[in-house]
Design a protein around this nucleic acid. Structure first.
Length: 420
RNA sequence: GGAAGCGUGGCAGAGCGGACGAAUGCGCCGCACUUGAAAUGCGGUAAGCCAGCAAUGGCUUCAGAGGUUCGAAUCCUCUCGCUUCCGCCA
């Protein structure tokens, strides 16, 4: 959500944002509706003022017959008022609906583009491993090493279901534990966040209403979140924080659920695209300055790169093009890990910032040094997502004999150097 | 699952049809006293929206949504949340 005043004063920016993000949005329609809304609002407020003064007068009257006369006169006012009020309410509902569709303005540094194919690589890390033997893909590796059961996974959990087992289960936990510890050491406060979450936080983060098809809903009207971003952003909903409490830097583990609607044909094999997975997410709330957002965006990207480097997974960082940005995102970097069997990099992390787009919806504010109340800025980035990360991890570390070397930093969790 | 209670400003907590955006305390800010601090005293201190260059004025908000009433923090209904007790469970 953007400030309506900002929208009114910057219609060209909003139009440009829609174009760049390939989102259809009619700003003029919103402005017209807003004119209408403001006119109605003024009328209603005048009528209410009158009603209030009349009511006060009645309270002062001593004489009963005068009182009754005044009451019956005021009744008419009341009827007119409630008609206008319902008109205003209808307008405000329409207005709200449109307001939820206004795209946030992407940063000028975001490249133009039609799809994720137009994302631009900005840096690379790591040597792409050269294998002098026929390599296995992650599915072959994991099945041969007894780390994964996909057949029984779908028997039990349906399409895209899986069991991690043996060292596969331990490795998944190890990656989570390692990441939590790393970020905690960087001063991020560790959390285990709920996966079952109320609607508000989805609306607040911008996952709803646009992403409705992507989210599981329960019979109790709770939703299963696809990322800890949702509960963690809900954490401070309706709060006014102190400036000295900022930035809030959180690292949160949660189970994640995604319907993957609209990706039926995609990545149907293996553990790349799953309905249920586990993720450690970084969430930052900072002061409402663009430079702060930019600084923390770089910082949370670096944190994740450090994890990739510690795990020894070659990766590249891309800056996402306009069309690959969500409604609320100002700028986004994806980190993509190298997948030897596909000879390409694939997304493992996604770092974005929103300015106050989310915090306006969630009403998360702080009092600055001058005592002014402002909406905080929010950012988030994957720290690690598993089992997806195991694809790169296992494939890059495989050996001729079909065993896999455990990255140095994970050995203490598995108590072994090699998975065989 | 059953029963009872509660939800008021940054926090605690009073108010239970009109004088209430709301006592009081804490916190915070300013001033005085002090070498400085503490303590004390005095004053100030909710948010959002609309109009206005501003001063200021108006509207809304006492969990949320409806309702009763000329008038609602206060009465009614529903929803959400919290607490306690019983049952069940990890």
């Amino acid at each position: 959500m953007l400030d309506i005043k900002f929208i009114r004063e910057n219609t060209d920016l909003i139009k440009g944002a829609g174009r760049k993000k390939r989102i259809n949005f009619d700003v003029n329609k919103l402005i017209d509706l807003d004119d209408n809304r403001l006119a109605l609002l003024r009328e209603v407020e005048d009528m209410r003022a009158k009603q209030n003064t009349e009511s006060d007068k009645i309270a002062q009257l001593k004489d009963d017959s005068e009182k009754e006369k005044a009451i019956s006169e005021t009744k008419k006012l009341k009827e007119d008022l409630s008609k206008k009020e319902s008109e205003l309410k209808k307008t405000e509902e329409k207005w709200q609906e449109l307001m939820l569709q206004v795209p946030n303005v992407p940063d000028p540094s975001v490249p133009e583009g039609e799809s994720d194919l137009d994302n631009q690589e900005i840096r690379k890390w790591g040597e792409i491993p050269q294998f002098n033997f026929k390599i296995k893909n992650h599915i072959e590796l994991m099945q041969d090493l007894n780390l994964l059961d996909l057949e029984r996974g779908s028997k039990v959990a349906g399409f895209r279901g899986y069991f991690l087992k043996g060292d596969g289960a331990l490795l998944s936990l190890a990656v989570i534990q390692f990441t939590m510890e790393q970020l905690a050491a960087n001063g991020f406060e560790p959390f285990i966040a709920p996966g079952l979450v109320r609607e508000e936080s989805f609306l607040g983060t911008g996952w709803l209403p646009q992403g409705k098809e992507e989210i599981y809903k329960t019979q109790d009207d709770l939703y299963l979140s696809g990322t800890a971003e949702v509960p963690m952003m809900g954490l401070h909903k309706d709060e006014i924080l102190k400036e000295e409490d900022l930035p809030k830097t959180y690292v949160a583990f949660s189970p994640c659920y995604r319907r993957e609607a609209g990706s039926y044909g995609k990545d149907t094999k293996g553990i790349y695209r799953l309905h249920e997975f586990m993720k450690v997410e970084q969430v930052v709330l900072c002061e409402a300055e663009h430079q702060e957002s930019v600084k923390w965006h770089e910082e949370i990207a670096r944190n994740s790169e450090n994890i990739m480097q510690a795990l020894g997974i070659p990766y590249r960082v891309v800056v996402n093009c306009g069309a690959d940005l969500g409604l609320g995102q100002v700028k986004k970097y994806d980190i993509e890990g190298w997948v030897p069997s596909e000879k390409r990099y694939r997304e493992t992390h996604s770092a974005s910032y929103f300015h106050d787009f989310q915090t306006r919806r969630l009403n998360i504010r702080y009092k600055d040094k001058e005592g002014k109340i402002r909406f905080v800025h929010s950012l988030n980035n994957t720290a690690i997502a598993t089992p997806r990360i195991l694809i790169s991890l296992l494939e890059n570390y495989q050996q001729r004999d079909g065993t896999v070397v455990v990255p140095e930093v994970l050995r203490k969790y598995l108590n072994k150097d090699i998975i065989s």
